[in-house]
Nucleic acid binder design. Structure first.
Lengths: 240, 240
DNA sequence: GGCCCGCAAAGTGTCAACACTTGTGCAGAC
DNA sequence: GTCTGCACAAGTGTTGACACTTTGCGGGCC
């Protein structure tokens, strides 16, 4: 409606001071910006699975031409976050049961690798404070039922391990399945006793890393993910 | 002109005869088509690493509007096959040494997983003919120096294993690094004695699969890739 | 003779209008 | 009353044109 009457409002005329490179051009959002925003909304469930993403609507909201929304949607499709059917538009993919288990198999392989590489590339002392964290404070968080903070801290550890692994290709692949793990972790961790079991496994893995035992760290990380998957299978009726 | 159907997205509606614009009866290539063609050229080194891809040029060659080339280039960029700089255009990425080793670590994790899943999901007899293939004919091919046929057959086995693993997410990830492995395999296999060593390891893995020993199949596949990586490290001056 | 400035061409980035497809509501017939 | 066909509207797909950036080249100045 109002979209066509929008006066072009000197968006770029004679203001070359801000070439586009940056992330947060306040003039208008770039395609990567849009991608990140939409990705965040999908990951946080702000946009429910199955919801339709209308191009014109989004274009109006962000104040950008529809073409740019289109490019962002194409990127989301490549990442598997939305599905587009010709002339039907884009809808947020809902992860089905089989895909969930497939992702756990992937996590077992990828995060196991990450644990091994991180152990190999860092001096053992590097993990000292993480061992301490999981031994004490994290246990308290679980006991208090503050799972949000626990998950937040765990996510930070996860990022530190990925960074320490220093393998960009691996990081990229873990990033691809990030949104989905994000959702799954929150669903599994509320299962009875699961949080404490997970903490114990993380602690064991970290202690192996602190010993510099890369092979054992990989094995323990994989074992942890396998039991998580088993838990998910057992309780799938309640979780999904 | 190789495969034109994109495996990931089924775009075709197949009914209407494309009444676009009137005159020409030529159906123009879709974005997935263009993606596949360009991907093939990059994988086969028909377009050298570092070469520039000019949009107007490609648009003229394929007889499609430039916008469509743009979308295809965006997809290639997401896959890491080209790098685009603003106003500078797209150039084919050249894989550097560190990335090569990173990819081998990934292959170890991913193809190991594929071997395990394939073993678990298929009856042991399913691999009988592959064992026979690697025991006899493949040995002859190497002895005759017909490495192209050998690689071709190996690629087919690789695809069968991935298909048997029945994990679409895993398949997608292996697909992402496909082009790069493609190039690397051809460089490693010409090293002295390497082809025969590789064959022996593939045979051992296949025999574990025929025994239904999934864990051992995974271990052997991983071991094979680790030695391949070691060979690459040893001879990197000659290969890269 | 070398350096710098400015111009021009090539190529990329952006956009708004146009064409087509699909879903929906309404009217008419059985 | 219900079903069927048609027409309209909403939304997506496509296209050519236009604006901006980079770069190579030539002329003028030091």
């Amino acid at each position: 409606m109002a979209a066509k009457k929008a006066p072009t409002t000197a968006r770029r005329k004679a203001v070359p001071a801000r070439p586009r490179g940056g992330a947060k051009g306040r003039a208008s959002a770039s395609v990567p910006d849009l991608f990140q925003v939409l990705r965040g909304r999908i990951a946080s469930q702000a946009i429910a699975p199955g919801a339709k993403l209308r191009e014109t609507e989004l274009a109006a909201e962000f104040g950008v031409p529809r073409t740019r929304i289109r490019d962002a949607l194409a990127a989301l499709e490549q990442r598997g976050l939305v599905v587009r059917e010709p002339n039907r538009g884009a809808v947020v993919t809902r992860l089905d049961l089989s895909q969930v288990f497939h992702i756990y198999d992937l996590r077992e392989a990828l995060e196991g690798l990450a644990a091994r590489l991180a152990t190999e590339r860092m001096p053992p002392e590097h993990w000292q404070k993480d061992v301490a964290l999981f031994k004490g404070p994290m246990k308290d968080l679980i006991a208090q039922g503050d799972l949000d903070t626990y998950i937040e801290q765990y996510e930070l550890l996860r990022l530190r391990i990925i960074e320490a692994a220093a393998n960009p290709v691996l990081a990229e692949m873990l990033d691809i399945i990030y949104e989905k793990t994000q959702v799954l972790i929150r669903r599994i961790i509320i299962l009875p006793g699961r949080a404490e079991i997970g903490r114990g496994q993380h602690l064991a893995t970290l202690e192996a890393m602190r010993r510099g035992d890369a092979a054992e760290a990989e094995r323990l990380r994989r074992e942890g993910l396998r039991t998580a998957k088993a838990t998910l299978e057992k309780y799938q009726r309640y979780v999904l």
